[in-house]
């Protein structure tokens, strides 16, 4: 299996379309600036009392997701192009599982906590 010329449209995750070095560096710079901005906003919002307090957690989560997106696009070069289909599909499947595991666990455990007494009251201590 040598690196023969590949006819189809396919791109490795992390690889970009052919660009010159200047354009590629510019991509990372844009990503870095955006990420720094989003991070700064997150840290600012977390400590501020300028905004309505209950909106802070929502804002933090939205900012985190946005920043993850920035990383994916500018550092990992995941795009919606046809050459990235497999990469995006794998990512989507992974995210679905992450969502199910985290969301399901939190939901199930919240219901258990609401319905059941705390463990230290129902379990005897070992001898």
């Amino acid at each position: 299996m040598s690196d023969q010329a590949h006819i189809g449209h396919d791109l490795a995750p992390g690889d970009e379309e052919q660009h010159d070095v200047g354009t590629r560096i510019l991509g990372y710079v844009v990503g870095l600036v955006l990420a720094l901005l989003l991070t700064a906003t997150s840290f600012f919002i977390a400590g501020t009392d300028l905004v309505w307090q209950p909106s802070i957690p929502v804002a933090l989560i939205v900012l985190a997701i946005a920043q993850m997106g920035v990383h994916l696009v500018f550092f990992l070069h995941i795009t919606t192009g046809p050459d990235n289909t497999n990469n995006v599909l794998a990512l989507a499947f992974g995210l679905l599982v992450v969502f199910l595991v985290v969301g399901g666990t939190v939901w199930i455990m919240a219901h258990l906590n609401a319905n059941m007494p705390p463990m230290d009251q129902i379990m005897p201590k070992p001898m």
Binding site: D3, Q4, H6, D10, L11, A12, P13, D15
Partner: peptide, 8 residues
């Protein structure tokens, strides 16, 4: 090609 296989 190998580069795509490995990275994937």
């Amino acid at each position: 090609p190998k580069r795509i296989v490995t990275a994937y």
